[in-house]
Design a protein around this nucleic acid. Structure first.
Lengths: 271, 271
DNA sequence: CGGTAAGTTGAAAAATCTCAATCACGGTGG
DNA sequence: CCACCGTGATTGAGATTTTTCAACTTACCG
């Protein structure tokens, strides 16, 4: 990534790995850029609406949401969307790009708690205290939709569907974190990496990308932090998977050669 | 624990370790049992209301909440409040007793994701899919208030304070899990146990109990599962802390002799 | 091109786990 | 009342996994 130009919202994918046949014909249909601009890039016209906050809303509800989500913010790679301690005012929907969230201990240690891609929401950590409890950093040039939280609460008092969708998204985040705890607490290094890659490919596939070819947006160190491993251990696991013919790894480009094998690796309780 | 009798809501504490002076005079004032019964054990009369869902609600709001929270459920030790896969209908507020939540992988592995004490809420994992994503099990004879979720959503559309409180509780859970991820991902065994104990004593202190003497409601294996360690490692860490004069450990009874020392142990990045 | 950040690989050290033996405690039944 | 049983806890010793430290390679950017 070298410039800040942000073309089609759905991005952060392998530009040189065209979507596979099995990923074609997904619900995320192509929308002409002109249309998007005509709609002032509103939720109702966003091709991410089936993955994002608008899921399950009817036309009227969507229209109200459009009026609420008026601001976007563009971030170059490396910039923080918010930092721990910042006052909380809004949630953010990733429109394009890729983020990481990380918490830091007083002693400087820090831990990546998640990676967010297009259509995913950021910022829930701030509701509890009114101040963000972690950092959110763009891992590539990115754009988010700003969702002012007070207004969102007000609107979700009017519309049960929006309210429920919000609860679902937060609940999903809690469940996701349960999964990470399981991973961190009871898997060994290779299982963790396999589970991580499967999760990534699944989410990419849900966005219409190939489920087998991906470009990692994060460093080995960031993967390691997320998985509770050192970057060396992550690197070794990648090499091992490549030797075993499960993956083809070329720096950040990864191709899954044997998905079933990867799946097996992710829960090999019989070590 | 041998019977199912559940006296005062605030329990699950060391009956033989009276509250220390530093814990006295806490907001959780004593309420006579007759009063409780007169109020039909409603939220408005519950001595946990400053820790539980009712935080920040005014009289009218509290009254409405009372009409919603009509059912209680009593569980003997070992019984599940809900299991993974169960249909989700309600949230639960721990009224008395102590719970653990755990997720299980397909391969049988499982991981304790949290311990819940009086005033804490359970069940948010079920909102995402309409089915619970983890088990919640009573670690001692316990009682919960059943909060029907649809009705709670309806009421929180009426009252912004309730709505916001709900969002805060869910956000707090997300932030808590971030903390657990930090612990699991970047702390070593003794740091994990120290952090765990500090968290427990803090929460007990917030309930008016001694911050120095506690009785663990869970086994070493359960602590280990939560902390991503084996029960032997947990046991060794306890012994080490005892040898170092930081704790006095007698099976499940723990006394913190040197809180500052424990705090130091919890973030000794300088290994 | 050269410098820098990222990634790989090796070997030794350290932490944790595993397996096994033993101990403590709280019921239970004789 | 006490011996016994089963669960939970402790401790030790060796095996295993992961980390640490260090050297080296690769890719990218100006």
């Amino acid at each position: 990534m070298h410039s800040s130009t942000l073309p089609d919202p759905v991005r952060s994918n392998p530009p040189d790995h065209p979507a596979h046949p099995d990923a074609a014909g997904q619900p995320v249909a192509a929308i002409h850029l002109q249309d998007l601009h005509a709609l002032r890039q509103a939720c109702s016209g966003c091709n991410l609406r089936e993955l994002c906050l608008p899921v399950g809303l009817n036309g009227e509800e969507l229209m109200h949401l459009d009026t609420l989500v008026q601001t976007r913010r563009t971030l170059p790679r490396g910039e923080a969307l918010y930092r721990s301690g910042d006052a909380f005012h809004a949630l953010y929907a990733v429109r394009a790009g890729f983020f990481k969230t990380c918490v830091g201990a007083e002693d400087g240690r820090d831990q990546v708690t998640g990676f967010q891609m297009a259509g995913e929401l950021l910022g829930f950590d701030g509701i509890a205290t009114g101040h963000h409890a972690c950092d959110a950093v763009a891992l590539e040039d990115s754009q988010v939709c700003v969702i002012p939280f007070e207004q969102l609460e007000a609107l979700s008092r009017q519309f049960a569907a929006l309210q429920h969708q919000m609860h679902k998204v937060m609940s999903r985040e809690i469940v996701r974190e349960h999964g990470v705890m399981l991973l961190l607490g009871s898997m060994r290094a290779e299982e963790r990496l396999a589970a991580f890659l499967l999760n990534l490919t699944q989410r990419l596939a849900a966005r219409g990308f190939s489920g087998t070819a991906l470009v990692l947006r994060m460093t080995r160190a960031e993967i390691g932090s997320y998985l509770g491993l050192t970057l060396e251990t992550v690197s070794r696991a990648f090499s091992k998977f490549q030797d075993d013919g499960v993956l083809e790894v070329k720096q950040r480009e990864v191709r899954v050669l044997d998905e079933a094998g990867l799946r097996r690796l992710a829960n090999s309780s019989a070590c």
